[in-house]
Design a protein around this nucleic acid. Structure first.
Length: 582
RNA sequence: GCGCCCGUAGCUCAACCGGAUAGAGCACCUGCCUUCUAAGCAGGGGGUUGGAGGUUCGAGUCCUCCCGGGCGCGCCA
């Protein structure tokens, strides 16, 4: 079994050595990559805390661990030594590193191979509200979710995408009522502007907020829709289809893997919502409060120290988000038999999910075998530090942001590379523009709120997608210029520090991917790829390739080629396409 | 009022569940295109990690308090 994940491997080996030397079974070597290059390639930080438990001298314990490891001679390790208060510093053996890399180059091993414990994972993401067009706030969940899905699949898990679109809420009553009003009126100049769903929604909302009789008609309309009235149903279907066409267009443009078959609309649960309520009632969990059906779980305390309700049915008989979510959990647990269900949703909904998950578990709607996880992401803020809006108070349409990014990329490629033909520049602009926007979302830590800013979102310098794409394009160009491109390549020697750092960085790719698939932080993958590209750039500046002696030239070309493969694979996992030229 | 999240360079963000000298990009300054793509590279200035205590070999990270911000808290999703 070849070593794939170096960190994991070292951690396992050193941890067991530490257990052996200390007698403490819970010993963890806590191996990380070295914080400074002069310390080596990896370091073990765990000896000190174990030594404390024994009240032993940490350096002495570290020495014992090293002796033990040397007796068991681990091929990967070239040098190992104690440093500072009890760190263990490790330098990898060049021969082992080269052979690992060459196994990747020859195709003998894959950088990411299928896990031996595949899981069935439901990923609920994107989930726009179909009453309006997608706006910039929908970008984050869509992009992060799509990256997580790609990574899980790459690792060999079975992934079920679920786009839990909002198509069944109160706003549809409002839209239907408004549509009926327009159809009744004979004024020809009111456009039936379903092509601009956003305007239609805004107009309907204005009526809803200003006219009492309209808003109560709207509420009745929802009830009619939900009870299956054919007229209401027909108008509703018109809205949904229009809205889905918008979504399809956005997903296509964004290169997001969602399709119609992944739809998990709220409306599909309509018929079983009643059964969910009955089930909860039978289990004695439901309390009626002010006419609404609620479940009170003692661990949730709200205002004034009262127990917080989970409302599952409104006093007018309507169902809520909580109800459909419970129904979705039931499906995902009982029928899909998922091991994990990931909800990639804005952090502001964390209380909602805590409640729903807790209820699902205690009411046994979800089995004990499913792990329900809210993959929360931070809110997009405006420059004023409040959730993002434009000056007029409207949100920015997602499609406008994407088009702007592509337009700016087009101007830039025209300026940088005017010799390229029109269609080629359009292609480059598309990939650079979309890639930049996606990368801007992915590269920030998932949980923190972040400020929306056109210029940083659409920047093409520094830690951005174009930086990575540029590194890739340089390598493609190199390879196409070399006459050796067809001969089998291998990295035969390391003649410069830059080569060594690049090589080791490449081999760390699986470590990162593995971390992201469990913790769902794609920004770690972005950081990694940025560092990888940065190391490549330095290597490229410092080490001539095509002009080098034949042996070195072939070796460096192979290294560059492996860098390109890694970059491409990584960008692929982020859902970003690569370019041969830019 | 209660709960969750956050406060790191002028700005936007990192920091691998407590590790060694807190890193990038933008902006600013200085170099590098008759040699593999300058969307790049090399270098410079810029920090009491909001403040005060505490825990220990070691704290941006953990605990307490304070200041400041965001979000959530009964019929929206």
């Amino acid at each position: 079994m070849p070593v794939q994940n170096i960190k994991q491997y070292l951690n396992k080996e050193i941890s067991s050595a530490l257990k052996e030397c200390s007698g403490i079974q819970s010993s963890n070597a806590n191996v990380t990559t070295s914080s400074r290059p002069e310390f080596g390639d990896y370091q073990a930080n765990g000896v000190m805390s174990v030594a404390k438990q024994l009240s032993a001298n940490p350096r002495e314990l570290a020495l014992k661990v090293i002796d033990y490891l040397e007796d068991n001679s681990i091929a990967l390790i070239e040098a190992i030594e104690v440093a500072g208060p009890g760190f263990i510093n490790i330098r990898l053996r060049e021969r082992s590193v080269l052979s690992m890399a060459n196994d990747l180059l020859s195709g003998k091993n894959d950088a990411i191979s299928a896990t031996d414990s595949p899981m069935k994972v439901v990923v609920d993401y994107s989930s726009p509200n179909l009453a309006k067009e997608m706006h910039v706030g929908h970008l984050r969940g869509t992009i992060i979710g799509d990256s997580i899905v790609r990574i899980l699949e790459k690792e060999g898990h079975e992934v079920i995408r679920q786009n839990h679109v909002g198509d069944w809420g109160t706003q549809f009553g409002m839209l239907i009522s408004f549509m009926q009003e327009i159809k009744r009126s004979d004024t020809e100049n009111i456009p039936k502007e379903l092509s601009d769903l956003e305007k239609f929604y805004t107009a309907a909302k204005a009526r809803f907020d200003s006219d009492e009789s309209f808003s109560s008609a709207s509420r009745q309309a929802v009830v009619k829709l939900q009870s299956g009235d054919p007229n209401h149903r027909a108008i509703w279907e018109e809205f949904i289809e229009t809205s889905l066409l918008h979504c399809d267009a956005i997903y296509k443009k964004l290169n997001v893997t969602l399709s119609r078959t992944d739809l998990d609309s709220e409306s599909r649960y309509n018929d079983i919502l009643e059964k969910i309520i009955e089930d909860l009632e039978r289990k004695g969990l439901v309390t009626e409060s002010d006419g609404a059906k609620c479940v009170f779980l003692p661990e949730f305390i709200g205002k004034d120290g009262d127990t917080l309700p989970i409302i599952i049915q409104k006093s007018d008989g309507g169902y809520l988000y909580s109800t459909t979510d419970l129904a979705a959990i039931k499906l995902r647990s009982e029928q899909m038999m998922a091991d994990r269900a990931l909800y990639v949703v804005d952090a502001r909904q964390s209380l909602h999910f805590k409640q729903v998950f807790a209820l699902a578990k205690s009411a046994e709607i979800a089995s004990n075998n499913i792990s329900l996880e809210h993959i929360a992401y931070g809110t997009m803020m405006g420059a004023d530090g409040r959730p993002f809006r434009t000056r007029s108070g409207d949100t920015v349409k997602l499609i406008d942001l994407l088009d702007e990014s592509i337009a700016r990329a087009y101007d830039l490629v025209t300026e940088k590379n005017s010799s390229l033909g029109e269609t080629e520049r359009r292609e480059i602009a598309e990939i650079v523009g979309i890639g930049s926007v996606k990368y801007a979302e992915l590269s920030k830590s998932r949980t923190s709120d972040y400020v929306f800013d056109w210029s940083s979102m659409l920047s093409f310098e520094g830690n951005t997608a174009p930086y990575l794409l540029y590194a890739f394009a340089r390598i493609t160009s190199l390879i196409s210029k070399s006459s050796e491109s067809n001969s089998p390549m291998a990295i035969s020697l390391i003649s410069a520090d830059e080569e060594r750092s690049l090589l080791i960085k490449i081999l760390q790719f699986p470590e990162i991917v593995n971390t992201v698939s469990t913790d769902c932080y794609p920004n770690l993958l972005c950081n990694y790829l940025y560092e990888l590209a940065g190391i490549f750039m330095r290597f490229y500046e410092a080490c001539p390739i095509l002009k080098a002696d034949k042996l070195i030239k072939i070796s460096r070309l192979a290294l560059a080629s492996l860098t390109a493969t890694t970059l491409k694979e990584g960008l692929d996992l982020l859902g970003i396409e690569t370019l041969e030229k830019m």
